[in-house]
Simulated scan of single mutants.
Amino acid sequence: MSGDGTIQDGNTSAAAKTGRPGWVNKAILIAVGVVLLVIAYLILAAFLPRWWSIRVANLSEQAFSKGIFWGLAFGIVCSLLPLLFFTAAWRVRKKRGGKVTAIVSVVLAVAAAIPNLLTLTIVLGSSNAAHAGERTLDTEAPGFRGATALGAVIAVIVFAALVFVIVRSSRRRAQKRIAATSPPPQV
């Protein structure tokens, strides 16, 4: 009971508590979420290109051979894995329990692509952080950017060859099955 003699059930809505309609509360939450996302973007855009270039520089140790090796490694692995994960997500999405598997595959694909995306933000970015990252990669990790691009191209070619081989072999198996089940031609 409240002070005026009415019974309160404890399940009062947000609108009754705040005196605002429910859509206003949702709009406020969305606005706060957007503001937080913009702030996070601005912080990460200023931080991540510099951080990634320093990490790569530490791996490369100012050596062309190490810069090229790490560039090829990141380019191949961080391009091939996302392609495989996206393909897995595409194949299982309609199966029973496949939506969860597809979501997990997409999350893993994005996570595997992060090193290449960070390198891409340095190469294509126009911010001060991207330019600082470019300078760091030029001096501390020579050959990394070009090798990463080459590695990505190699990964796409390997993926295309893999898809070609798998599709071709499945078609051949299907043709053999059809040939085995059909009666021989009459002469």
Rank of each mutant, 00 (worst) to 15 (best):
L137D: 11
E134D: 14
G133Y: 05
A16S: 08
N25S: 13
L150C: 02
L72E: 04
L37Q: 07
R177Q: 14
W52A: 06
F85D: 03
A14T: 13
V92L: 07
R96L: 13
A89Y: 00
A109C: 02
F86H: 01
Y41C: 04
A57H: 06
T119Y: 04
I154S: 03
S105G: 07
I122N: 02
G75E: 04
A16R: 13
W23H: 15
N25E: 14
A16K: 13
Q175K: 15
L59T: 06
T18R: 07
A179C: 08
M1E: 11
R173K: 15
A27R: 15
F159D: 00
P49I: 01
L118P: 06
A161W: 07
G133C: 05
R93C: 07
K26H: 11
R173I: 05
I68H: 02
Q62F: 09
G5D: 01
V165H: 00
A180P: 11
G22C: 09
P49N: 00
M1W: 10
A161H: 07
A179K: 15
A14P: 12
G67V: 05
M1T: 10
I114T: 12
A147I: 02
L84W: 00
R173Q: 12
V92M: 02
V187K: 08
K17W: 11
K95N: 12
L29V: 12
A89S: 10
G5F: 05
S65I: 12
R96H: 13
A88R: 07
R135I: 11
F74Y: 10
V35D: 09
L117A: 13
Y41E: 12
I76P: 01
W70K: 01
L59Y: 10
S169Q: 12
N58Q: 12
F86W: 03
K26S: 15
K26A: 15
V56H: 06
R96P: 13
A174Q: 14
P82F: 00
G98Y: 00
Q8F: 09
I76V: 10
L59H: 11
K176W: 11
G19R: 09
I7K: 08
A40W: 04
A112Y: 00
A89R: 01
F69K: 06
Q186A: 14
P142L: 04
I178A: 15
K26D: 14
W70S: 03
R135P: 08
F74W: 05
L120H: 11
F69Q: 06
V106P: 01
I30M: 10
R50V: 12
N11H: 13
I7R: 07
I76K: 00
A141Y: 05
V32M: 12
T139A: 14
V32H: 08
E140D: 15
P115H: 04
F47T: 14
T121W: 03
L37Y: 11
R173N: 09
L120T: 13
W23F: 14
K94I: 09
L29N: 15
F69T: 08
P185Q: 06
P185W: 09
A147H: 04
F86L: 12
F74N: 09
A149F: 08
G5W: 03
A89F: 00
I157W: 01
